[in-house]
Write a protein that binds this DNA or RNA. Sequence first.
DNA 1: TGCAACAGTTGCACGCCAGCAAGTATTGGA
DNA 2: TCCAATACTTGCTGGCGTGCAACTGTTGCA
Lengths: 150, 150
Amino acid sequence: MDSSADATMTASRALLGHVARSLQGALEHVTLPQYRALVVLAAAGPQRMGALAVTLGVHPSTLTRTVERLVAGDFVTRESAPDNRREVVIALAPAGEALVADAMARRRDSVAATLERLSPDEREAVRRGMELYAAAAEEPGAPDLLTLGM
Amino acid sequence: MDSSADATMTASRALLGHVARSLQGALEHVTLPQYRALVVLAAAGPQRMGALAVTLGVHPSTLTRTVERLVAGDFVTRESAPDNRREVVIALAPAGEALVADAMARRRDSVAATLERLSPDEREAVRRGMELYAAAAEEPGAPDLLTLGM
DNA sequence: TGCAACAGTTGCACGCCAGCAAGTATTGGA
DNA sequence: TCCAATACTTGCTGGCGTGCAACTGTTGCA
């Protein structure tokens, strides 16, 4: 198992490289905490401030300022809920959506480009290995992934 | 190739989860920029301020404060070079070394734990897939990995 | 010997994240 | 109708990262 662990660690470094590169573009426009908020909104749809704060694990007041900046940058919209005027709903604006989608696309492209260097047989071996690993891994919790802005 | 890309993306999420969790402990003691400095020192050994600043891509003055905090936390040592008194050499202190090593160990453990859920045959398939992928991937540049503190 | 280049540090300014405490507006139940 | 709970916001404070400009000490060459 040692050798498979070693191989997996090495591969994880390569995959991390892809993730890091894909994030770099986004991080030129927003900070990491801001990007994390965008990711949550992209994954879970429009959210109330309170729910978003809980998901991100930050104080409501912190989120107020963060959202303030995201609104200023046209990455999200903020409006009071139609049925309950004391609730505030945050939603992705087109620019925010694009930011997250582009990062995803870049990541996927670089993975695909890597796979393209392999023969069909090898690619199949990679697919099988990755699938097995993913199945064996516990689904990483949302908070874990958020640490790194996924 | 689409299906292998999909599988790889899914596996990368799992691997990212491991990385994120392994980082969480370290980030309770130091900030991400501080941790990145520790990683560089762990990988490349003691460094002059100038070299470290270039590697990290930050202004020398920025590094001065960052190192200041790391010294205050006993994570690194800072002393002037023996042969050239205008140069300052930063080295990992035991606490800093432990911080990085622990994160590495935790990461490896969680990968190993995942692999343990597989049969020997499956494990072998994972090993082969991971090796192929790692070989096909361009070595991720140091700056890329540093973004995420590897 | 003297002066320019070099290596870092310090002063300064700014933006961001972060939490606490207090305030405002809204809602819903007594 | 009134009051307490709810959902956010605002004022305040503090830490961190960041860069620029100016400064100090050191080195090495002319």
